[in-house]
Each structure stands twice: as structure tokens, then as C-alpha cells.
Design a protein around this nucleic acid. Structure first.
Lengths: 115, 115
DNA sequence: ACAATTCTCAACCAGATGGTTGACTATTAT
DNA sequence: ATAATAGTCAACCATCTGGTTGAGAATTGT
């Protein structure tokens, strides 16, 4: 999870993923849009690969990359936990109540502290 | 977006967010579970704040932190773009077709290259 | 056989990151 | 007034990050 979010925390790598959403790409194809050396782009690709976000198929001298959506799904699910904080008015009410609770607790004891 | 994903790419900060999902917390309360100095935890909190993930209300000498779900929603939405890659069988079929397309294109011209 | 293409690797560099400690400000309690 | 509490700030340090260049490996084209 660390590796996934870290990989996503770079615009270049996010654009590479977006590119891969349109189909397989070789390393050079992925690198082409960027004003950096091939070696630098290759490092980005390796970062994505280490995070499990892409898989690589070596075909002769070219490396074909494809998206692996698994970790993206995990990250999406992780963020989904917080969905209740931004969605409905009903949740806004719940949040309000919960926060009043929390405020009451904060002035006395921490949540979960033994009495 | 860079800042958001970067902030999420650290387990300590993710745990702090999870803590804040249960209600407001002061800086010391957020820092308490971790084996690091208060100053170090304070830096993490500032990182979260700079990413817009939390807001801070200074109340006397204590700083009360609350979750701001906005950026989380954005990140969730960004990931949602890739939902079709991991969800239904129907999408799996679409993906297959799209990838055959892509494969055909790759052997000839890049997507979007002028003819 | 030779040359060109694709890509990785290693060494190097500047700057960011995550941690420390010590000093400091501001508020609250005695 | 003094002391304790909550928190930041600045300096410092080791390590990671994102880029470079140069060399080399592996495959493909002539």
C-alpha cells in the first residue's frame, strides 16, 4: 500500500498509467512524451512495476507493459472507507453526532482509554 | 493531487487519518501511538495539512485537528476512472477487445498518430 | 559479420524526506 | 511569579528520490 500510493504520488507515473489505460505500451512508447532520458523513464516504470501497478512481458528486445488494476482497486477500496465523510447529508448528520460525542470524550478521556 | 497521494504514501499518516475518522484529535493525541518525537509527528501532521487532508483549529495552547474529506474524495474519483479494469465480466470482455485493437495498432502505428 | 535498436545497470548529483535534539513561544495551572 | 503543558521552529543527519551520463547486454536488421 505504501508503494502504491507512493507510485501514484508523481504526475509522470500517473500519466503513464493513464496511457496504459488505452492499451499495452513498450518502454520507449511510455517514455516518449516526457522530456527526460529513457533511463529516467525506465526508473518510473520500474517503480510502477514494483508497486504491482503494471506487469511486463519481455518480447524480444522490447518490453511490453500492461496495466494491473489490482492495487488500484485496493487503493480505491481503502479510500472508500472515508466515503461516508464526503457523500450524503444523512452522513453529515451522523458525522455531526459522532463529533459531538468525540468532543465530549476529548474533554474527559481518550476514546478507548480504560475508566 | 501529488501532495495528496504523497501524504497517503506513509503508513503513519494513513493511521493518523484513520484515527481522525473517529473524531477530532489534538496533535499530542495523534502523536501518542508512535515511537517518535512530538516534533516528528508534528511534521507528519503538517504534511497532511498541506495536502488539505486535515484542518486545524487552534484552541488555546492545543491544536485540534479534524479530517477534511475533500481531497480523499478527489483521489477516490481519480482511481474510479480505472474501475472498469477490475470490476465486471462485461468490462473484461471490453478490455479484451480493446487490447486486441491496441495490439493491432502497436504493430502498425501508435494510437493517435496521423496517417 | 556488423550496425542499429531497445532497454537496463551503475555511478554520480542535487534536492526532498523523515527522523533527531535543543531552544523557543504561548497558554494554563499552582 | 513560577512551573508545567502543548506545540512549533531551526539546525542537523542519514537515507531516499528523480534526474543525469556512460557503458553494456540482448535482440533485430542489413
Amino acid at each position: 500500500m505504501d508503494a502504491v500510493f507512493h507510485a501514484l504520488g508523481d504526475a509522470t507515473r500517473r500519466r503513464m498509467l493513464a496511457d496504459l489505460a488505452n492499451g499495452e505500451r513498450t518502454v520507449s512508447q511510455l517514455a516518449e512524451p516526457y522530456a527526460m532520458s529513457l533511463a529516467a523513464a525506465s526508473k518510473h516504470i520500474k517503480t510502477l512495476e514494483n508497486a504491482g501497478l503494471i506487469r511486463r512481458e519481455v518480447r524480444g528486445r522490447t518490453h511490453l507493459c500492461r496495466l494491473d488494476p489490482g492495487p488500484l482497486a485496493q487503493a480505491h477500496q481503502w479510500l472508500g472507507f472515508y466515503e461516508r465523510f464526503w457523500t450524503s447529508r444523512l452522513d453529515a448528520l451522523e458525522r455531526l453526532l459522532r463529533e459531538e460525542d468525540a468532543a465530549a470524550n476529548v474533554t474527559n478521556t481518550r476514546d478507548g482509554d480504560p475508566r
